[in-house]
Each structure stands twice: as structure tokens, then as C-alpha cells.
Design a protein around this nucleic acid. Structure first.
Lengths: 187, 187
DNA sequence: ATTATCGAGTGACAAAAGTCACATCACTGC
DNA sequence: GCAGTGATGTGACTTTTGTCACTCGATAAT
């Protein structure tokens, strides 16, 4: 069951059986249906979520009520409103299922206990944080430097499987353009 | 001299005198003049830089030769082409002085040795990485959800001192718009 | 089976921003 | 002092993108 999580962590830091037993005791499994919310804008953020199966969207809704996709999360990805999670404040985004989804939930208290119990996990999360930072910075650069068509092509190249699971209207909301603009791309 | 670095680190993790002595032995002080490059696009990235005094710009230049500002760095900020630094590959960006600048340089090998010698530093860098990720994500949201005027106002509010030290043409290149568009904002 | 709903494409028009050209002002270096 | 450079603002025009309205086809719900 949680072999998936163990494999995921061990791609960065090796674990003994007892270490992983300890780790897995801090997570809880939850199942959500399509259209259900894991995080509601304006409410506390209960967990950081590790996706076992399914697909999520992290959505920021502006004052005008327009939805912008901050990120997607498919199998083996972590997702949450990280700023709110880590500072224990209210969510500014929502996290919603695009498909029926199974996640492992990690509360902030348990994250801290877990890192205290197995210190090498801080190294794992450091690697994840570096990856997240690099990805975010590359997305900023992509937005600034290339047109819609190339951004869409970069997305196709980087996440080919994800693109096929997500409607184009949501991809447009992720790329920061209207669905019409994305629809009008040559080819 | 390096009290500045110690204070900076101790805002996250407390250090003994011997720990800090160890830490400071891994850094080297360098001075650069306005217009000098700390990182050249296409070359290896020697260091992660901690700014003691001065002001830097991290620049991505696209195929058309247009410059885009990925970030600025003033006193007590860390800056480098992180993706290239951490993976020991060639830089895709340049890091250049906007003012005469003093930095503490940390090579990747020394970063690793230092973290091995003083493990709690991984926690410090984890905090920095989380901050960097959150900032980058908020910048993405800002770009997607609000117009130029509000982005500029958010920048003013978040980094009031920095804005005064940087020409508006560079701020425009940071915000992702032409300098004319920024210049034409009402008020 | 027949309504709804959703995803997707398209035309017409408006709004926003980019590009190019030019003018001004402050500062630097000789 | 004076020429050169860089920062800034502005007008004119073009290009891109957003918005609104409509259509079509596939899928889901009853």
C-alpha cells in the first residue's frame, strides 16, 4: 500500500524497515471523489498531500471570481497551499479533485514529529523544496520569455501524460491565458 | 565582518562560536564593481552568493537577445543560478552587479562539507528553500491574476527600499512588461 | 430517448500591451 | 564646458489577447 511512498522517499534517502514503519505511522490515507475539495479557500490547511492515485488542481480565485491554476498534482506528487500550511494560516487557494483521488495526508505537527524522529527526512524535504523552487522559477522565466504556443509546447514536453488527463480550458488557466487564446494556436 | 552572516543564520538556527567559526571557514569574500558579472550565461556556476553589501540582478536573456530579470539581490539575500549551481551544469542566466557589491561565496562542495560538519544548517537551508518556493509561487500568482499596475504596487509594498535603488526599466523587465507600459501607468 | 452539461472551436470586436520613434533631463568622462 | 550615455516619458501604430456570443459534438443524467 504505502510501498509507493517508500519508493518515492528512497529515491532520495535510503530507509530501514523500522524507519519507514515509523514514517508511515504519521500519514493517513484518504479518498476523494471528483469535484471534492481537499483544501477550501479561507479555511485552515489540514495537510500536505501525497497523491497515490488520481489528479488534483490547486486553484487561486481572484476578486473577480476568475480561476487560475497554480498547479496540478498527479501520482507521486506533493501538493498543498504551502504558504498557508507551513505558517498555519488560512488558505488562499483551493485544492480540488479533477479525478477520483487517493492521498496520504501529513499534518504539520506530524511532519515536525516525523523529522525529529527520522532526521534524514529533512534532507528529503530539502531536495523536494529545491525542486519546487527550481520548477517555479523556470515557470516564471517561461511566462516572461516565450509566447503561448511555446509555453504550451514546453508543457507538453515536460508533462505529456498530465496534459492528456486535463481539459484544455484548465491548461489555459494554468498557462495564464484565456481558453480561446489557447484554442486559436496554429496547429 | 561576517557577523552579518552569523546574524542572518541565527535568525533561523542558533550557533555556538565554534560552529560559526567552522561555517565561516567555507566562505570567501569577494568584491565586484558595477557591471561586473558573478555568473556568465553558458559557463559553470562557481558559487552561491550571500550579499553583504550592494545590489545584483539575475538575468535570463532569450534567443532574441531580450533581457528578463529573474530576480534582484540586495543585502542579506542569497542569489545564484540555482538550477545550474545545484546540478553542476552550465548557467542559463547571468548574475551582474547593479552597484558595487561585496559577497560571501559558497562553492557547492563546501556547501556539502559544511552541512556534513554542522547538520543543523540543512534546516536553515530548508527554511530558505521554503521561503524561495513560496515567493516564487506568489510571483506566479501575481503575474496571472492582476494587471501591471497592481503588480507594481505589490512590488513597492514588498520591497520598498529595493525599488528605489533599481531603474524602472529593470523593474519592468522584472515584472515582465515593456518599460513603456510601466511608464504609462496612471499616477 | 431526450434533455442537460461540458469541452472545444470560431467570429467579431474591444482592450491591453508591444514596438518604434522622438524628446527631455541628469549625470559622467574628457 | 561639452559630448556621450542612460533613464524616463510620450505619441502613433501594430499586434496580441481578452471578452462575448454562438455553434457543434460527446458524454452524463433522468
Amino acid at each position: 500500500m504505502t510501498k509507493q511512498l517508500r519508493d518515492h522517499i528512497e529515491r532520495v534517502v535510503p530507509l530501514s524497515d523500522t524507519e519507514f514503519e515509523m514514517i508511515s505511522s504519521f500519514f493517513s490515507l484518504k479518498r476523494y471523489k471528483k469535484h471534492q475539495f481537499l483544501i477550501q479557500d479561507g479555511e485552515p490547511v489540514p495537510c500536505n498531500f501525497f497523491v497515490l492515485k488520481g489528479l488534483l488542481k490547486l486553484v487561486y480565485t481572484n476578486d473577480a471570481g476568475k480561476e487560475h491554476i497554480v498547479g496540478f498534482a498527479q501520482e507521486d506528487w506533493w501538493e498543498t497551499d504551502f504558504a498557508a500550511y507551513y505558517t498555519e494560516s488560512k488558505a488562499t487557494m483551493s485544492l480540488e479533485c479533477i479525478e477520483d483521488t487517493e492521498v496520504l495526508c501529513l499534518r504539520l505537527i506530524d511532519y515536525k514529529k516525523m523529522c525529529a524522529a527520522v532526521p534524514k527526512l529533512e534532507h528529503f524535504f530539502l531536495e523536494k523544496a529545491y525542486q519546487g523552487f527550481i520548477s517555479a522559477q523556470q515557470r516564471i522565466i517561461s511566462t516572461m520569455t516565450v509566447g503561448i504556443k511555446e509555453r504550451y509546447e514546453q508543457l507538453l514536453k515536460k508533462y505529456p501524460t498530465l496534459v492528456q488527463r486535463v481539459p484544455k480550458s484548465l491548461l489555459a488557466a494554468y498557462l495564464g491565458v484565456s481558453r480561446e487564446a489557447l484554442s486559436r494556436l496554429p496547429q
